[in-house]
Amino acid sequence: MKLLHLVRRGAKAFIQVQREKATGMLDFELKELENIFALLLLGGFAGIPSPPAPIAIELLPYLEREIVVLLARSDLSTDAIGALMGMLEID
């Protein structure tokens, strides 16, 4: 009974790992898209062509996740290749 339980848990963990691997690239792509979305909206403050500031201000209250992603991405901006290698699990 205990063995069966352990096997089940192991199989579940294995499936979850495979799921994480399968969605890793999509997750990276999603974060990039969210980053671009926030950059497009808020880039005007940093000199990037962007829609009129009032549109950004109207959307600002709902952009919490995108701003978190933007800030996290800006931390990695000096090491973009490192971030990509990490995502592809290349040591």
């Binding site: 799921r19 969605t23 999509l26 999603l30 898209l33 497009l40 909206l41 962007s50 829609p51």
Partner: peptide, 29 residues
């Protein structure tokens, strides 16, 4: 502004569709 908003809405649709795909493949994401 309409052009900007149109393009932003398209990008948002892509983001939502990607989120959907990820959650379908990995419900614990």
């Amino acid at each position: 502004s309409g052009l900007w908003v149109k393009e932003l809405a398209k990008l948002r649709e892509t983001i939502l569709s990607k989120r959907n795909t990820i959650v379908r493949l990995n419900p614990d994401s």
